[in-house]
Design a protein around this nucleic acid. Structure first.
Length: 738
RNA sequence: GCGCGAUUAGCUCAGUGGUAGAGCGUUUCAUUGACAUUGAAAAGGUCGGAGGUUCGAUCCCUCCAUCGCGCACCA
């Protein structure tokens, strides 16, 4: 039977959408709907192979990183599916607390409104509306790329079951005594008006000044400071914080200051007597070696303050303005204004010894770029010591492996020095903290001591407000107004998506998952937290292999960014060259763990290659109809036939081990080379002289094998060709025997 | 400051202890039957620098330079 004739050129536009639709209709993306396994697949069918997609933010649209990552995962999933595994690739999105709230707030601002004008409930309605409208955009973009995800299992980090998982996690940590609420110095975004964890900061280089300020010794009563022995010079980039100083610190081994430790200085402007203390954490080589200590507005100073029991003067408020405690002349000023005024005042008093230009980094919010101020705030914390140990052990023991392994260093470096995790955020969009306070006792929380911790008898952890307060039996309980860090819920992704804490069939069958593929910038923000959450809550590691793929940069090696206009939209590439060519271009450049200096030429090469494969198929189908005999007979085989079959076998081996070892780029290069330069340029050319049975059989066989090998990389093209083979054994190449 | 990675053809990148490879670009030739999104051929590299190990180094080691990235208690 003659196969239907193929068009002279491959057209992604006429193919990709049609094929994707057919796949979706087949139901084979869902592991429960796979067709009966072939004899070769049967052994594997008892095993599952699961990947939970890193859920993109609902605010996002697909960028090159997503496209690369999705392609990598699709390659793994498709190969395993063909090998017979029950494969599940679970899609979904993340509610992305701060990011999403910011987007909706921006929308409101156009109408001159703030979230406070609407109130919490109305505002959240708006966010949900926004999510319903735009939240699935990115998932549809995954489809355009050809991702074989099981859409029937799509999850969202705030859907009903997931909420339960988050509550359960909170409950669990609480019962284990891992949660506490305390007023500590945390990172505060003055724009988003919320706390941030250490990982949610970025640093921006800024040209600043280093001021050398004289703090007079209080034992010296003279009006003018002429002699060096009468004052201590401290260096600071932030003179305005001196209003909150409660000590001057030097390194205990610093010979210059030995005689001064224990003495006191009179803090200028504030006229407050503060001690000179010593602390090992002070670097004697910085500035003068003497440092002003502001426990409220610096993380190091906070630690020194705590060790030495220093008083805390909170001089900067949450809006980034000076507080009452900064004194009458400064209260209400913006930080920059206060800085100027403090410097002017000090100059006036001849207390500035000198000023130097100084390049330093200032912390900014990773979501809005706003200024981040360290300041004391009452927050929930998760104790990290034991969880970090769990996470480290899993990797040290080899139960979880990073690919490439060098990233384990980054992982350990963070966990070894990790601080307790500030998990509360002062925003509205997210999982509201499942804590209910006894109203009567709530007042007691409003205390200032850094050591303050909430005693359990003041609140309960519950998913719903109880009718009666179990503590005082009379008040109306109030829920904590904070929400949880978005990463607290993301950390549950691999098991919460499968139904945890319920003991669902899916959880039993598909957890733990096999692979987690992601970019390096969220190794600690997300991966490490998933690992300890999985071990601690689900009782098992969440995955075995962590793939850290390269980052896609511009051709010049710069970060791709929408705001800088250096980004490339994968959807534009798909439109221009097709999804398969785009996938090809991505993987073609994915060599080792190197960052990719993006070159669109690789996508064009992919488009040409797609056409080449198309025409190879066209030639073979013109010659003969495919019988799909897995083992060609050796009758009539000539030297060329044997050679190409040998090379085919070598290629298959290389492609297999390439995919299995997560070396996707080299696998594709090998396959490309075989198809173009061995099969097309040499074998097919020579076979034109023959057209005998041996050549036909060989062509048939090699074509089918090529389609199979290439399918994970370029699924639409290969599927379309497969559909035209008269002797195909399965209804889809997607489920053919690998 | 500590750590990681890179440095190979005009561009983007592979690669190997024994006379260097791909894609794109360039040059020449080839056109009625799979494909011009093609084929055949060619030009083009002292494999960042210096030293070392070795019979032999682009590959291993040391140092240096440049670029990029991460981390840090960035006062």
């Amino acid at each position: 039977m003659q196969a239907k004739e193929l068009a002279p050129a491959y057209s992604p536009k006429d193919t990709e959408e049609k094929i994707y639709q057919a796949w979706e209709e087949s139901g084979y993306f869902n592991p429960d709907n796979l067709p009966p396994p072939t004899a070769e697949q049967a052994g594997n069918r008892k095993k599952t192979y699961t990947i939970a997609v890193p859920p993109p933010n609902v605010t996002g649209s697909l960028h090159m990183g997503h496209a690369l990552n999705a392609t990598i995962q699709d390659i793994l999933i498709r190969k395993k599916r063909m090998e017979g595994y029950k494969t599940l690739w679970l899609p979904g999105t993340d509610h992305a607390g701060i990011a999403t709230q910011n987007v909706v707030e921006k929308d409101l601002k156009k109408q001159g409104l703030t979230r406070h004008d609407l109130g919490r409930e109305k505002f959240l309605e708006k966010v949900w509306e926004w999510k319903e409208k735009y939240g699935d955009i990115i998932l549809n973009q995954f489809k355009k790329l050809g991702s074989s995800m099981d859409w029937s299992r799509t999850r969202f980090t705030m859907d009903e079951g997931y909420q339960k998982a988050v509550e359960q996690a909170f409950h669990h940590y609480h019962k284990k005594g891992r949660l506490y609420k305390a007023e500590k110095v945390i990172n505060w975004c003055t724009r988003c008006q919320t706390s941030l964890s250490d990982l949610e900061l970025e640093y921006k280089e800024e040209a600043g000044k280093l001021w050398y300020i004289r703090y007079p010794l209080s034992e010296v009563k003279g009006e003018k400071l002429k002699v060096k022995s009468e004052y201590v010079v401290v260096a600071t980039t932030r003179p305005e914080t001196m209003l909150g100083d409660s000590a001057v610190a030097v390194n205990p081994d610093d010979k210059r200051y030995q005689g001064l430790i224990g003495k006191k200085v009179l803090l200028p402007i504030m006229n407050r007597e503060i001690p000179i203390i010593s602390d090992e954490e002070i670097d004697a080589t910085f500035g003068t070696g003497a440092v002003k200590v502001t426990p409220a507005h610096d993380l190091l100073d906070a630690r020194i303050g705590e060790k030495n029991n220093l008083p805390i003067y909170k001089v900067i408020g949450q809006l980034g303005k000076m507080t009452e405690e900064a004194g009458a002349g400064f209260a209400g000023l913006k930080i920059a204004e206060a800085r100027e005024k403090v410097v002017a005042e000090l100059k006036n008093q001849n207390l500035i010894e000198k000023e130097e230009n100084y390049q330093h980094n200032v912390a900014v919010c990773y979501r809005c770029g706003g200024v981040v101020e360290p300041l004391p705030s009452l927050q929930w914390f998760l104790k990290m010591e034991e969880l970090a140990k769990l996470a480290m052990d899993a990797v040290k023991s080899g139960k979880i492996k990073f690919h490439p392994q060098s990233w384990e260093k980054v992982y350990f470096a963070w966990l070894e020095n990790v601080r307790d995790w500030n998990i509360s955020r002062q925003i509205w969009w997210g999982h509201q903290i499942p804590v209910f306070y006894c109203s009567k006792k709530l007042e007691k929380f409003k205390v200032k001591s850094l050591k303050f911790k909430v005693d359990e008898e003041y609140f309960i952890v519950a998913d719903k407000k109880p009718k009666q307060c179990p503590i005082c039996k009379e008040c109306e309980m109030v829920q904590d107004t904070d929400v949880l860090d978005t990463w607290f819920s993301s950390a549950l992704w691999p098991f919460a998506t499968l139904g945890w804490p319920e003991k669902t069939k899916d959880l039993k069958e598909f957890y733990p998952t096999q692979v987690l593929s992601t970019a390096r910038d969220i190794i600690n923000l997300w991966v490490s937290r998933m690992i300890f959450s999985g071990l601690e809550l689900a009782g098992e590691k969440p995955f075995t292999d962590v793939i850290i793929h390269g980052t896609i940069l511009t051709k010049e090696g710069r970060r791709m960014s929408k705001s800088l206009g250096t980004g490339i939209d994968p959807m534009v590439l798909i439109e221009k060259y097709g999804a398969d060519a785009t996938r090809f271009g991505l993987i073609w450049q994915a060599m080792g763990n190197q960052d990719i200096h993006w070159d669109e030429a690789a996508v064009m090469a992919g488009k040409k290659f797609a056409n080449k494969v198309w025409n190879i198929a066209r030639f073979v189908l013109q010659q003969t109809s495919l019988t799909n005999d897995p083992r060609p007979t050796t009758n009539g085989h000539q030297k060329e036939d044997k050679e190409i079959l040998e090379k085919l076998a070598e290629t298959k081996k290389a492609v297999e081990s390439g995919i299995d070892n997560y070396d996707f780029g080299p696998a594709l290069h090998t396959l490309y080379d075989f198809v173009w330069h061995e099969l097309a340029d040499k074998y097919i050319e020579s076979s034109k002289q023959r057209q005998d049975e041996g050549a036909q059989q060989t062509l048939n066989y090699v074509l089918l094998e090529v389609l199979k090998m290439l399918h994970p990389f370029m699924p639409h093209l290969t599927e379309e060709i497969y559909q035209d083979l008269s002797g195909k054994k399965q209804d889809f190449l997607m489920v053919e025997t690998w």
